[in-house]
Every structure is written in structure tokens, then in C-alpha cells.
Amino acid sequence: MTTAVKAEKRQHMDIKKFLANNGALVGLLVLCLALFIATPDFLTAGNMLNIGIQASTIAVLAFGMTFVIVAAGIDLSVGSVAALSAMVSASMFTTAGLNGWVALLGGLLTGAAAGAASGMATAYGRLPSFIATLAMLSVARGLTLVISDGRPVRTADQVSFLGGNLGPIPMPIVVLVVAGLVASFLLNRTVIGRYMYAVGGNTEAARLSGIPVQKVLVIVFALSGLFAGLAGMLLSGRLDSAQPQAAVGYELDAIAAVVIGGASLAGGVGRISGTLVGALVLVVIRNGLNLLNVSSFWQQVVIGLVIALAVGIDVLRRKNTIH
């Protein structure tokens, strides 16, 4: 074999490998292509920005969820925590009359604190994360209603800015990109990020290697809460008010995005880039079905099937590449 042919073959293998490892991305591109052909309304600047804005909340929640799922946990509370963070922030500004920056920071810290609480219940209280965060789902939603008495509260200008525009670019998209880069950096470059993979891959082996598993878990859930808090800022900022019933059920979208992005619920596997693609897949499907005037009832059916299909393909792929 000549070197040229060999090189070509290697390139061919690389492409094949890339496609096999990025099934969700391929799916997303096919989806976009199909929508581009089906409707002229899809590929317009306005619609693209629209998709970006819609994706921002889910993606930010899902980035936080990626930490948790990589560490072999699950966080059911992110939707409620997002709502609580937004409500605390808005109340600090409107009711307590605090500075807008303080209110923004307070909202984010509320998210982190709620996450840390779930983390401690998991790490030190030995509750399964499913149970600990199921409890937090209810507690956080309840507190949101208590604080607001069930009424919307106006947000600080600094929070509303996050929902607004920076020149022609919507701020949620900027936040999405920055949050994604930070999350990816944390997961790939830092010691704590690599510890998450080790803890998720084999908790006992990680512990015996001297990895402080309990601290890692608290940090993981605190990060998930922090990202949920940020998502809460985006949501409330867009409406200029924190809604007591905001983000109900968003945890399921976040989990779906992470799983479509190739993470394993068994832990130890997952990437931020995959999660972003997963979130985009969900949003593009919803957007496309809207453009095609498909009823929102049917949209739920389609989304469910897509989740099953995406994970099913992934399972098959893994089975075929055991060696």
C-alpha cells in the first residue's frame, strides 16, 4: 500500500470514528437540513436567534446536570431551584430594596446553596441523589411560593439585562456560550472535573485512591444549583419578572439533553459539547414543529420518541464497539 492510500484510509477511519462518536451532532445536522428543505421560515436570522434564546435556559440547566450525571448522580430539582433563585433575587431587589447587583449575586448563590444542600444530603446523609433532589424539587418550589405568596415579582435591571440584548445579539445566547465554556473548562481541565469522572466511573476506587468523594459530590450538586440559578436569572430576566410557577418540569428537558448528548446515566461518561447538541436537538425539534404548525400535544409525543431513539442508537453503537 502506498503512503498516500494509507493516509487516505486513515482519514476515512477518522471520519468514521468522528461520526460514530458524534451521533447526536449528525442527527442535529440532518434535522436542520430537513427543516431547511421543509420550510423557508427555518433558516432565517430571526429564527436562528430565537432558537438560541430558547436553547439558552435548557442548555444552562443541562450543563449543570452534566456534572451531576458524569458523577453518577441525578438532579431532579433544577427547575424548582431555578424558580427559587429567580424569586429570591427579585424579592431582594423589589421587596427588600437591595442593590441590583447584590440581587443578581444573591439569586446565583441561592441556587448554589440549594444544590449544596442536596449534595450534602447525598454525600454525608447517604441519600440516593434521586431522593435528595426529589425532596429539594418540592422544598424549593414550596419556598418560591411562600416568598412570593404565589404572585410574580419584578426583577432587578441587572437581571433583566441578562434577558435583553447586547447590540444585535440576545444576551441569553452570550450567557449560553460563556456558561458552556466555563462548564467545559471545569470538567476537562480542572482537578475537580477529572475527579467527577473518577467518582462517576467507580466511587469506591476513587475513594481508595485518596479522592475526597464526599467533597466532590457536594461541589457537583452546588455547581448544578449554581447553573440552575443562572438559568433562573435568564428566565426571569426575559419576562422582567420572577414567576412562582417558572421552569416546572425543566429538569426533564435538562436530563434529556444530557442523555441525548451521549452521557451515561451509569456515570463516568459525558461531555459539555454533547449536552449542548442535545439541548439544541430538543429546541430545534420544537421550533421546527411549531413552524410546520404541528400541535404542541403532538410535539410532546415526538420529543419522547426522539429521546428513546437517540439513546437506543447510542446503546447499539456501544454494543458494536466493545473492543
Binding site: Y197, A198, G201, A205, I211, G268
Partner: peptide, 23 residues
């Protein structure tokens, strides 16, 4: 069960105990 993260690489498994001290 106690020694290795089986789906992680040889590189990572050798490095777990020194990840923090060399960072």
C-alpha cells in the same frame, strides 16, 4: 471493584492519586 475505574484509560487510572498534588 475497589482499585480501578474500568472504563477510564490506563493514563487516568495511574494518575488518580497524583492529580491534585501535581496540579
Amino acid at each position: 471493584v475497589q482499585g480501578l475505574v474500568l472504563d477510564a484509560s490506563v493514563n487516568e487510572n495511574i494518575g488518580y492519586a497524583t492529580l491534585a498534588s501535581t496540579a
